[in-house]
Nucleic acid binder design. Structure first.
Length: 417
RNA sequence: GGGGGAGUGUCCCGAGCGGCAAAGGGGGCGGACUGUAAAUCCGCUGGCUAUGCCUUCGCAGGUUCGAGUCCUGCCUCCCCCA
């Protein structure tokens, strides 16, 4: 890889964000001498962003930090179509109301990463529904459609794979790549946007936009993609048993978010520190050099930094402290997740099976039974052996709570109210 | 339109002579070992008021003491012919 002269590309490169860049020298020169505007597209199929969105969002953040202007493009229009890339089945289509609601809540999450506004290199949030929804079909075909070769489109992986595997690919989905190319063109017109970034699977789509821009507007546009992130042991990143790791504190608490990063595999710590925190590289190098179990210190730093980015430093430190008391001191931490139980019910005795379900770490009493059988459930750090056991006021600790645990990592407090 | 094939445990893939809560994987969860890691090994992986009861094999009926398995109709997908 070339060594970049611009802060922007140099930073991305040295932190491991770059997979492919089109015309790297030209882009580097542009970024060095002036302000570049770039965008990344996000779909709005969910009401929150998750860990998988973190990497592209960090790219936007670094962009802004190095003096350039980021655009977060919300796919309010394209979400109505669905990207076929890498999927065998069509995405379910969402209603406009759903899409708009999702947009609203996602907007708030973005505000934590980027400074939005109207001046200098303030970030812009655009929504492609603004231009896609009002498209006139005939005009679009004539102005844009003529530049796309079906022959060529059929060779793109996203299409080819679907066809080879004999899976359905509707015309609607087939158009996705055209719309995405059009987005690039439109953002170029509206904001002078010249660079589109995205995951490596977006390369083909981005190139389409570049071609369209050259043909229609005579613009020189650029592509930059980031590598696909998997864990050292090959699993997809950001998935846990409970599903996606959301960035919304109402969906995944700061404590759980901290825990997610704390449990990073050894082999990923260095890479993740570079990608998901803003610590200087020298410091990361020091942390990565730690051997054996000392690497746990690096994981804590990763967890706290990553959590601070999304939930604020205060929440991050609180999560760190809670983890320290719970795991390292074996003591009871007040800030563990908790749920309430009525005092009267507790006096009558709450069955451990039901309590486990209420605590949220098992989904049925049957599962609770199984966990007890294999020694996975603890009350106040004592393994439960009898599934008929009941919790009573006697089990309350001095702090007035009962600590329920599943396995070694999941702890929930029952509070009597 | 004609001929052939497929749809299985609501995470996925996939076996299944009429006795089936249904083989085997993957994934996940728990246990052991560790360092809240990985790898490895062991156990579990429909629900419930639980030595029993209830609900599951595309959908709806039927045959049978008994149906994932046989029959009929329907839906969806794929292949070949038109």
């Amino acid at each position: 890889m070339a060594t970049y002269k611009s802060d922007f590309l140099h930073t991305l490169e040295s932190r491991g964000f770059i997979h492919q860049v089109s015309e790297p020298e030209v882009l580097d020169q542009l970024a060095k001498t002036g302000q570049v505007t770039a965008y990344i597209g996000y779909d709005c199929t969910a009401a929150s962003l998750h860990v998988g969105h973190l990497l592209p969002t960090m790219m936007l953040r670094w962009m802004q930090k190095t003096g350039h202007r980021p655009i977060a493009l919300m796919g309010g229009g394209t979400t109505r179509v669905g990207d076929p890339s890498g999927k065998d089945e069509s995405r379910r289509l969402l209603t406009d109301e759903q899409i708009n609601e999702n947009l609203k809540s996602i907007r708030q999450i973005f505000a934590r990463f980027l400074k939005f506004g109207d001046s200098g290199n303030d970030a812009v949030m655009a929504n492609n529904a603004d231009w896609l929804n009002t498209l006139n079909y005939i005009d679009f075909l004539r102005d844009v459609g003529r530049h796309f070769s079906i022959n060529r489109m059929l060779t793109f992986d996203s299409v080819k794979l679907r066809l080879e595997r004999q899976h359905e690919l509707s015309f609607l989905e087939f158009n996705y790549m055209i719309l995405q190319a059009y987005d690039f063109l439109e953002l170029n017109k509206r904001y002078g946007c010249r660079l589109q970034m995205g995951g490596s699977d977006q390369w083909g789509n981005i190139i389409n936009g570049i071609d369209l821009g050259r043909r229609v507007a005579g613009a020189q546009l650029f592509a930059l993609t980031s590598p696909l992130i998997t864990t050292a042991s090959g699993a997809k990143m950001g998935k846990t048993a409970a599903g996606a790791v959301w960035l919304d504190p109402n969906l995944v608490s700061p404590y759980d978010y901290w825990q997610f990063w704390r449990n990073t595999e050894d082999g990923d710590v260095g890479r993740f520190l570079k990608l998901f925190t803003e610590l200087p590289l020298e410091e990361i190098a020091k942390l990565t050099a730690l051997k054996g179990s000392e690497i746990n210190e690096a994981k804590k730093v990763l967890a706290t930094e990553a959590t601070a980015m999304v939930h604020g430093r205060e929440e991050a430190l609180k999560a760190e402290a809670t983890a320290r008391t719970t795991f390292e001191e074996g003591a009871l931490a007040e800030n563990l997740p908790s749920f309430d139980a009525k005092k009267s019910e507790l006096e009558a005795g709450i069955g451990i099976l039901n309590a486990s379900v209420q605590a949220g770490f098992v989904s049925s009493t049957s599962e609770a039974r199984r966990q007890i059988k294999s020694g996975g459930i603890k009350v106040n750090d004592v393994t439960v052996t009898d599934e008929k056991m009941t919790l009573t006021p006697k089990d309350l600790t001095q702090e007035g709570v009962i600590k329920l645990s599943l396995g070694k990592k999941k702890h929930v407090l029952l509070r009597a109210v």
